[in-house]
Amino acid sequence: MTATASSARPWDAERVARWLRDNTYHHSRFADLDRLVRLKREQGRTVSLCLPTLNEERTIGKEILLLRAELMQRHPLLDEIVVMDSGSTDHTREIAAEWGARVCLASEVLPGVESRRGKGENLWKALYQCEGDIIVYVDADIRNVHPRFAYALLGPLLERPDIEYVKAFYDRPIEVVPGVRTSGGGRVTELLVRPMFSLFVPELAALIQPLSGEYAARRSMLETLPFPIGYGVEVAHLLDIYHRRGLDALAQVDLDQRVHRNQPLDALGRMAFGILQVMFDRLHRYGHLAQRPPISSVMRQFSVHGEGGYQPVEYRLAEEERPPIITVPEYRARFGRPPPTPSEP
């Protein structure tokens, strides 16, 4: 990938509003599974579901059973379920095989390539193992898994050929005032990723949960993307696709609630570090750092209005600075200080 001049488009409220309206869905839109199966057949597509795992014996069996029963047996939407395991030491692989998934140990895939550990590594190797034209990635630690976690991500890809990559978001939060709720992601998203996007790639801040582990994409796109092996893989995908194809190649789907393990703060710190590495790498590649664009003072978060209307909420957070107080004559007079010399800050 070559570095180009900064290709991040400036914030265009109208364009982002249109994207929020046209490319943001609720899962209920895709609940007619027979229609999705028909679309898939008409397009001659095949679909693989990949579950990256590491010690998920508590949830993996149920996840495979539900997705297989509903989306392979009752409605033939998925062609295969592949578990890509990082080397679980519990019964994850045995249970996954028992319930009908094809189980791969990541370290044994592509043996000619030096093996590395990380979620991104698994997702990358899954491209080699899975056979589908469309790949759906779903995390394996979901406690309230439902078939919508897969079919709703497929919906936009089957309906619209212009969409390349579909991201999930969930946990529509509590109403703050009647009809309006704040919306957003987890701690790393809200404290790191969204502020960074707001600063450097403002349009991507419209993704409600850019780090969600559930997404679907076309193989033809995924096979051309580099995969950071760690936590930065999702952010890298978004930045790379955005710079190649723009916001319109992305879509997001509201999956309602998702219950999963809560990560401790130290783990989130490591995740944030990995994401920062990838972010700065991409900002450099795409020329954002070299061009040193003016630092934006607008932070954008999102709220939900009624059923499904997402609107940006802008906060002007200009971090203005006061000079050293010793430069203020009144201060010097009060404390008997001499004027600062030019070399002093």
Binding site: L65, L66, A69, E70, G100
Partner: peptide, 10 residues
């Protein structure tokens, strides 16, 4: 078996 168990969970 699988559709039945899926229904049980639901």
């Amino acid at each position: 078996r699988d559709p039945l168990l899926s229904d049980v969970i639901a």
